[in-house]
Simulated scan of single mutants.
Amino acid sequence: MPSHKYAINAVMLGDTSSLPWTNLGLWQVGIDYPQACQNLAITLANALVLNSNDYVLDLGCGWGASLNLWQQKYNVSHIDAVELQAECFQHLSRHKALKQINKYQGSFLNLKSLDLNSNYDAIMCIDALYHHALPHFLASIEPFTHGRTRLGFHYLVFTSRWASLSFLQKKKYRYLLGLADVKLDYIYSCHQLECVLKQFSWQHTDIQILTEPVLGGFSSYITAREKEFNHIHGLDGIKIKLTAKLCHLLFKEGILDYVQVVSYKSTESS
């Protein structure tokens, strides 16, 4: 059995490194899984204008690939990391490359329970937040922001096609998304998402649609990998295959978009 409901088998996905990635990836022609995952992280970091002077909070950091990226590519020396899964946290704690990073085990929906050090210049949550209610998350990070904090995360939003679906069609998607631990009640339109952010004094929100290179790219990769190899098997494999099928369906039907969200804390709240 997977050790946690969010546990993902990185080896089956194609990353055998000591600090593996486990996100959906941002896909381009001719790249492998680790490169696609790194693309997703780099695209978010660049949109946040991440720099070496930032005090960074990485939420839901998994096996630590993103933490190493901030150190190696962006020369960030002040990083705090929060991870819920005990197995991942123990791995982070043991890895020599991450010894300078402050690591905390717990939920990013309850940051007050952790002994975090400071307010942060950049807060990031890569490919994880759409499992949770955005207002709950924003309330959790609020005590750890200042007037110039930048926030970046990935989310799912309704497209204009959603309103045209019948009751039964919406019920079907509620069920399918529920299997992936995504609740329809947590999903907004782009306009609604901006309004929720404004309620917590986040301004100048930029929403970038990444549906095709993320959902379409991941589903195509898993389909090809499944045909070429026999590495996707067992319960971990079923989870990966079902995720890929859902990604394909959402991309094909065009009712939800996968988006990158970057927002800035209003100076009035400092």
Results as ranks from 00 to 15, higher is better:
Gln85Val: 15
Thr243Ile: 00
Arg161Gly: 03
Val29Ile: 12
Tyr104Ile: 00
Tyr186Met: 04
Gly25Thr: 03
Leu116Ile: 07
Ile209Trp: 09
Asn39Lys: 08
Ile207Ala: 11
Leu134Ile: 08
Glu194Asp: 10
Tyr33Asn: 05
Lys252Pro: 00
Val182Gln: 02
Gly62Met: 08
Ala128Glu: 13
Lys227Gly: 10
Gly106Asn: 12
Leu48Gly: 09
Phe137Met: 10
Leu98Lys: 11
Lys172Gly: 08
Leu177Ala: 10
Lys239Gln: 05
Asp127Lys: 12
Tyr175His: 13
Ile238Pro: 05
Ile79Phe: 12
Ile232Arg: 07
Gln100His: 13
Thr149Lys: 00
Gln169His: 11
Cys37Ser: 03
Ser166Arg: 03
Lys103Trp: 06
Ala7Asp: 00
His154Pro: 04
Tyr120Pro: 08
Thr223Leu: 03
Asn75Val: 07
Lys73Cys: 07
Leu44Glu: 03
Val157Tyr: 04
Leu111Asp: 05
Thr211Ser: 12
Lys265Ser: 14
Lys73Thr: 11
Asp58Val: 11
Tyr130Glu: 10
Ile207Gln: 10
Leu44Ala: 06
His132Lys: 11
Ile42Gly: 10
Val259Asp: 07
Val11Ala: 14
Tyr74Pro: 09
Ile79Cys: 12
Leu193Gly: 05
Val56Ala: 09
Asp236Met: 12
Ala65Met: 05
Asp58Cys: 13
Leu250Ala: 02
Trp162Ser: 09
Leu156Thr: 05
Asp185Gly: 05
Ile42His: 11
Pro20Gln: 11
Asn51Val: 04
Trp27Gly: 02
Arg174Trp: 09
Tyr55Trp: 07
Ala81Arg: 13
Asn51Arg: 07
Ala244Arg: 09
His233Ser: 03
Val262His: 02
Ser189Thr: 15
Asp206Glu: 14
Thr159Trp: 02
Ser166Trp: 03
Leu210Ser: 01
Pro2Gly: 12
Arg148Ala: 14
His231Pro: 08
Ser3Arg: 06
Ser3Thr: 11
Asn23Gln: 01
His146Tyr: 15
Leu138Pro: 03
Leu26Arg: 05
Ala7Tyr: 00
Tyr258Phe: 07
Ile209Ser: 13
Ala45Trp: 13
Ala65Asp: 06
Ala36Gln: 01
Gln199Ala: 14
Ser270Val: 10
Val214Asn: 02
Asn230Ile: 01
Met124His: 08
Val259Ala: 06
Ala7Trp: 03
Thr159Ala: 10
Tyr173Gln: 09
Leu210Gly: 01
Gly14Phe: 01
Ala97Cys: 12
Phe167Asn: 05
Asp127Thr: 14
Asn230Thr: 01
Leu176His: 03
Asn119Asp: 15
Gln90His: 15
Gly14Arg: 04
His231Lys: 14
Lys241Phe: 00
Asn68Glu: 09
Asp54Met: 04
Lys96Phe: 08
Gln199His: 15
Leu235Cys: 08
Thr205Cys: 15
Tyr33Ala: 04
Asp181Pro: 05
Ile42Leu: 14
Lys227Cys: 10
Trp70Asp: 04
Gln71Lys: 05
Gln192Cys: 11
Phe153Trp: 15
His95Thr: 02
Leu184Thr: 06
Cys195Gln: 10
Glu212Asp: 13
Asn23Gly: 02
Phe218Cys: 00
Glu228Leu: 11
